[in-house]
């Protein structure tokens, strides 16, 4: 039964950055792709994000960051997720990320990074693949 449930995604805005166009666009795209989506709204702490991820039993956490603090913020979010026992949740990142930081994000456990211009199809397909792997 577990395999047939809809993919549950938490789209979150960590930190103080107020740019949420990308987050709100991807929320609508995921919904249209048949996923169940929760959006945190702005200015969330890593602790708040991990708590909601736990409560909502999500498969995926999407972090949208445009303030340049993605590496440090993602590190804290990953730590908090692991502290909640959610180390195997699929985490991906969107926003303003220079290419040189992508390997750093992947090294701390982020599965994929989708910057400006990424296609919905590619993002959804990537999530489906990672979620299928996670569910075994």
């Amino acid at each position: 039964m577990e395999h047939s449930r809809h993919t549950r995604v938490l789209v979150a805005k960590p930190g103080l950055d107020g740019h949420d166009r990308g987050a709100k666009v991807i929320v609508q795209a995921f919904r249209d792709a048949g996923m169940e989506v929760i959006y945190t709204g702005l200015h969330q702490t890593p602790q708040q994000i991990a708590r909601v991820a736990m409560q909502e039993d999500v498969d995926v956490v999407g972090l949208s960051i445009l303030s340049g603090t993605h590496v440090a913020l993602c590190q804290v979010v990953m730590d908090e997720l692991r502290a909640q026992g959610l180390g195997n949740v699929v985490v991906f990142v969107g926003g303003t990320v220079p290419p040189k930081d992508v390997p750093k994000l992947k090294a701390i456990g982020v599965k994929e990074v989708f910057g400006a211009g990424s296609r919905f199809d590619d993002i959804v397909q990537s999530i489906n693949t990672h979620v299928a792997t996670r569910r075994g």
Binding site: H43, T69, A72, V76
Partner: peptide
């Protein structure tokens, strides 16, 4: 803690 990663950044 909510602000310290972003001091002087943007």
């Amino acid at each position: 803690p909510r602000g310290q990663l972003e001091v002087g950044r943007v």
